[in-house]
Design a protein around this nucleic acid. Structure first.
Length: 247
DNA sequence: ATTACTACCTGACAGC
DNA sequence: TGCTGTCAGGTAGTAA
């Protein structure tokens, strides 16, 4: 479910409520963090990181995870953090989400929103394979998922099957700008809510109405009117405009 | 290094 | 109603 803009939106909501709160009791998972204080909340790729005294809790929402401040408890609630004031509720329909106490964060690639253009272009040296699966690889660049990969490639005019190593420097610079712009606009819109995603305050995002290709198979391209195609690439549904996007 | 396949788990939806 | 199959915003493990 959540990609970088959704995780960023959730983290902003958590950061407004959690720092300074003490975890009094954890219900639903054996984490042994009772009594610890949450000092800060940050994002690391698609991970939500709670900095506690003496460690950090890394939470990954995978497909259907939600983290809500004072959220309602439902049949899909998996963990409730009881705080000295209020609660933090973790809900996860498909139970793919993970929650681990760590000393070191998982090593992944540079953040898709923070990576400088020059570094981004250089990362492609020596890479084989097609561009879309590469962008989805979190050890290459972290934060992009299926929605924003498709949307970024559309804006950059790059076909998802294009060979990464064959892209010219100008096209890579354009891709860098496209990724940055799409993510920035999506964060401003509070993320994309297609079915499950809500922020830490329970609000839906609105960026889904701005999607040009994702989820728009057989609908006209907003730029040229050609019908958007859906193919499967790297086992993922992939949407693109065959006129605007070239290999 | 890259790709394919399986698996994790649940719900929505289409078609019969 | 209900069955079957497909799809879903993610990622790990294994094999080729």
């Amino acid at each position: 479910m959540p990609e970088l803009p959704e995780v960023e939106t959730i983290v902003r909501g958590l950061a407004a409520a959690l720092p300074g709160r003490r975890i009094v009791r954890v219900e639903g998972r054996d984490l042994a963090i009772e009594g610890r204080v949450i000092h800060a909340v940050r994002r690391h790729g698609k991970y939500i990181v709670l900095d506690l005294d003496g460690g950090m809790l890394a939470i990954h929402l995978r497909m259907t995870g939600k983290l809500m401040v004072d959220g309602l408890v439902t049949k899909w609630t998996r963990v409730v953090f009881h705080l000295d004031a209020g609660t933090l509720v973790f809900e996860d329909i498909r139970r793919f989400g993970t929650m681990t106490l760590l000393e070191d964060l998982p090593s992944n690639g540079p953040d898709a929103l923070a990576v400088p253009e020059q570094e981004f272009v250089q990362m492609f040296r020596g890479r084989r394979g097609r561009i879309k699966p590469l962008l989805l690889n979190q050890r290459f660049v972290s934060g992009l998922g299926n929605i924003y990969t498709d949307e970024s490639l559309f804006r950059a005019g790059i076909h998802p099957r294009a060979q990464a190593a064959r892209l010219s420097r100008p096209r890579l610079r354009k891709l860098h700008a496209a990724i940055h712009d799409v993510l920035t606009e999506a964060i401003a819109a509070g993320g994309s809510s297609i079915s499950d995603y809500v922020s830490a305050t329970g609000d839906r995002g609105s960026f889904q109405v701005s999607h040009a290709v994702y989820g728009r198979a057989e609908k006209p391209c907003p730029r040229c009117g050609t019908l958007i195609r859906r193919i499967v690439l790297g086992q993922r549904g992939t949407h693109y405009c065959s006129t605007c996007q070239r290999v």
